[in-house]
Design a protein around this nucleic acid. Structure first.
Length: 313
DNA sequence: AATACCTCCAACCGCAGTTTG
DNA sequence: ACAAACTGCGGTTGGAGGTAT
């Protein structure tokens, strides 16, 4: 027979999360780390299904989430990646580690899709020159772009792997307890989810509900400030062009959905113990060294930029 | 001031692949 | 081997807040 249900279907609460529930969830994750969601409702007393707990954590309470409006560079990156990957929001989110796939998806659906539609169909009826998407560029161009992206990723990986000395831009993978705090890009030490605490602080502000507009502005500002003050906020130059830095996100934090991060996070390694036998980095290194694409990648890199989309903004 | 309409986003739903008893 | 739960993902929805009329 199968396994027992993770939580009772009867009496499971739905709808918006209350601050009390958030605190319960964060407290639990502080103690046990993310993962093993099926045990969360039982152990916390939350009347939520495990799925809802996981979603709440990954989309809202998880450390390092940046909220607020998207920067132009983030938007450019999303547009590029969407053109490259399609609606693979989780994959796109892995390039924008401070944004959740849900956020990116929402932003795409509410802003970028309209923006692109508008630009594709200008009043004069001519399609925009210079806009590139799989639908508007030739197949040859498209394939070249795809190859360029792969090469860039390989190049970035090669650079990261060949660094003996820790680069200030490359996070170190030495967790003391198995968890990483992306926000700080250093090993996550102990149960102090710094950014979660700030998320909770923000929640509590809302909870205390002097819910004036002023309070909301302050709280969101506080969060954004706190993120940037930790030094890892993806700034315009960081996230826009340099995929090598974007690649850091694949290795230096516990992304919500990245395949890489899943295999490297405690959660992922729990579920895929085989990875532990072969260093995932060495696997990637093998792949990297398998093709001599790095040099070519550098050439292409020089020819590749988001500049051609600059007209979008 | 009242109402309608619009925007945004948190959360839900359903599916597919994976894991587990 | 199989069935059922778990997990992750993408699509969609509903309600709160904002804006226009």
């Amino acid at each position: 027979m199968g396994r027992p249900p993770c939580c009772d279907k009867v009496g499971v609460k739905k709808g918006p999360w209350t601050p009390e529930e958030d605190i319960m969830l964060v407290s639990y994750v502080q103690e046990h780390g993310p993962g093993n969601w099926r045990s969360v409702p039982t152990n916390t007393g939350l009347r939520r299904c495990s799925k809802s707990c996981r979603l709440r954590w990954t989309n809202y309470l998880r450390p390092g989430i940046k909220r607020g409006s998207f920067t132009e560079d983030e938007e450019k990156m999303i547009i590029q990646l969407q053109a490259l990957l399609g609606n693979k929001w989780a994959a796109i989110a892995s390039y924008l580690p401070e944004r959740t796939d849900n956020d990116i998806k929402n932003h795409w659906n509410t802003h970028l899709k309209k923006k692109l539609k508008k630009l594709k169909e200008p009043p004069n009826g001519h399609s925009m020159v210079g806009f590139s998407s799989p639908h508007t560029i030739s197949r040859g161009q498209w394939e070249k772009r795809l190859q360029t992206d792969i090469n860039k990723a390989k190049q970035a990986l090669h650079e990261a792997l060949s660094l003996e000395k820790p680069s200030p831009n490359v996070p170190q993978l030495k967790p003391s307890n198995g968890y990483y705090s992306f926000t700080e890009l250093k090993p996550y030490n102990g149960p102090a989810y710094a950014s979660s605490i700030e998320n909770i602080a923000r929640l509590l502000k809302g909870w205390v509900k002097n819910s004036t507009k002023q309070a909301q502005e302050n709280s969101s500002t506080t969060l954004n400030d706190s993120v940037s003050s930790e030094g890892t906020q993806i700034g315009p130059k960081q996230c826009g062009v340099d995929l090598s830095e974007a690649f850091e996100s694949l290795f230096g934090f516990e992304s919500s959905n990245s395949d890489f991060s899943q295999s490297m996070s405690p959660e992922g390694s729990e579920r895929k113990p085989d990875v532990g036998n072969q260093n995932p980095l060495s696997m990637l290194e093998d792949w990297l060294l398998d093709e001599g694409g790095v040099v070519q990648g550098k050439e292409d890199l020089a020819n590749f930029s988001f500049d051609e989309d600059v007209e979008l903004f």
